[in-house]
Design a protein around this nucleic acid. Structure first.
Lengths: 338, 338
DNA sequence: GTGAAAGCGCTAACAT
DNA sequence: ATGTTAGCGCTTTCAC
């Protein structure tokens, strides 16, 4: 039942080495103007005591920390993939990263709160993942990934949501489907809107009239998708295919279909969007659109580091990078039942 | 080309509200002894200015931050899964989390460095993921997940590596394999050692002599596994099955087999360990052992929060939680060629 | 009920 | 070459 030891500070090192804390700081940061003998002695003490400067205290004082922040509302399949990509991109740099997950504190405007809590200190720049507000007063470079609202002045990275949705819908049309349900995301999310627009555009090109009856709001989570998925699946004239606006809601739709004893894909085709790893694990594996979440993360890091290097200025030109999507045909899509 | 705005601090709020910063601090933290009218006024200004206290500055001063830290050397499939689990467990608490990824700075002893940089400030406690050293002088509660060395005094969460390896090896034996190669992890990693021990124990029970010729060090990464995998696959008398010590090296082995034109599983069975999502995406999907990385994360969070609640003392009894593993038979394992 | 002031660990002038 | 000092933004006594 020992209590925890107290942390070793720069003062401990200074005292032990018989120098001032300023000197220790100089040694730690490799500044010029320290006698070789002093340097050696201080280094020895640092080693002996196992001292490591506190990122927190340091960041409070100095401008540059060589750490970037990635703010997510939660760590789920989408953000986890993105983080893998970000970490990969960071490996080639001198930067480290802190990920801040707001968790259940992620109510409306979590990104603004998290941003003010971390930015301006701790980090040299920040990546906002699927932020819901974008008019953040920033102290530092900020890059938004897949923001929930469009038309931002912030540098933004997203995917070809519209094109992907068109391709996916055309895939269903090509299989012979004419009654295609849409389990849409929330209308306040930009990516959801674009996917819905793609769905409508593809229908229109095929000369099929848009039927609002076949469209339900599914949100982007399993919880919110359950009820509307059930509605779609239990309609008198059931759609022969359902396009769920993301994989999580597609997976939930498959689950609901299973509960109702409806076979996928023989009785109804179900397709998603994102290509999270989990989508390949469903039974049968899900047909979806790959939006390369890792690439989103990599691109966001590259853009941010570039902005940081560039110094304390916003970019002259608005930055808006859109990455390609790709149809991934697996086995939940098939011709409609006769 | 605007420069970035400067951050709004407690002083800005105080000035605007015509009170001292101490009062603002009291309001922010809900302390007693603030007149109702003052409270209202200060809150209004906070709202107006969009002020949010800096986690960094706050943590420097006060003990409790309601934030836990998770230290990983990198974000890859294993740690990403673990983070998902941790985030899930955190949703039921009032805590938020910061993940610190050391990235390329993750040399020997990264966890000690990262720990001193973050702990004692910023966080109320820390989870160390696959740390290589364990004799950390801690200021706060620390929980280790899947540590690389055994026999630690730190609270530890890991999986039944031994039992899982036994079960996996018995699966191969049951299919009729007698020459089973092992692509082992590094001997300095506890989990790798346990898996190897399980492999040997299963062979022994089956009355098969251990053949060091069939064992190669594969490390736990795709890069390090490539060469030894090739050695195993190109031996004069090739093993009929290969047990790779984790999924990443198993996936690399499959890749190498494909390059050599060796069919999996008809000519050689390949199995892994971990059940990362990627393991189900290989062609054919990989037979492996599930170690429920998400559960590791959840359990680590629960243990840590418990320690934090308990106050500033180390637990009286050593904590060591071992989670069950489960064989996942997919399609890379089959009877040996005749 | 509120403000002044000390100080958390550190860096960056400014002295010497 | 080294030390002294002033903060960074915040919380917390201690006065009033």
């Amino acid at each position: 039942m020992t209590t925890y030891a107290s942390r070793i500070t720069i003062a401990d090192v200074a005292e032990r080495a018989g120098v001032s804390i300023a000197t220790v700081s100089r040694v730690v940061n490799g500044r010029y103007g320290v006698a070789k003998s002093t340097n050696t002695k201080v280094r020895a003490v640092i080693e002996e005591l196992g001292y490591e400067s506190s990122l927190v205290a340091r960041s409070l004082r100095s401008v540059r920390t060589n750490v970037i922040g990635i703010l997510v509302s939660d760590i789920e399949p989408f953000s986890a993939e993105l983080l893998k990509g970000a970490a990969k991109a960071l490996r080639e740099s001198e930067f480290e990263m802190v990920v801040y997950a707001a968790g259940q504190h992620a109510g409306e405007g979590w990104e603004r709160r998290s941003l003010s809590r971390l930015s301006g200190t701790l980090t040299d720049g920040t990546i906002l993942v699927t932020p819901t507000v974008l008019d953040v007063a920033t102290t530092q470079p900020v890059v938004a990934v897949d923001p929930h609202v469009g038309g931002s002045s912030l540098p933004t990275i997203d995917s070809q949501n519209f094109e992907g949705a068109v391709e996916l819908t055309e895939h269903l049309l090509g299989l012979g489907h004419r009654r295609i349900g849409l389990l849409a995301g929330r209308p306040d999310l930009e990516s959801a809107r674009r996917r819905e627009a793609g769905y409508r555009a593809a229908l229109e090109s095929a000369g099929i009239e848009y039927d609002p009856e076949l469209v339900r709001l599914g949100g982007f989570t399993e919880e919110t998708a359950a009820a509307p998925a059930r509605e779609l699946l239990t309609m008198a004239r059931r759609p022969t295919a359902i396009f769920a606006a993301n994989d999580l809601s597609a997976i939930q739709t498959m689950r609901t279909a299973a509960e109702l004893g409806i076979d996928v894909p023989d009785e109804v085709s179900i397709v998603g969007f994102d290509n999270i790893p989990e989508s390949a694990l469903t039974d049968p594996p899900l047909t979806t659109v790959d939006q390369s979440m890792q690439a989103l993360g990599q691109e966001a890091v590259r853009t941010l580091l570039d902005l940081i290097e560039r110094g304390d200025q916003r970019p002259a030109e608005p930055i808006h990078i859109t990455l390609p999507t790709k149809l991934v045909v697996r086995r939940t899509s098939a011709p409609p039942p006769p």
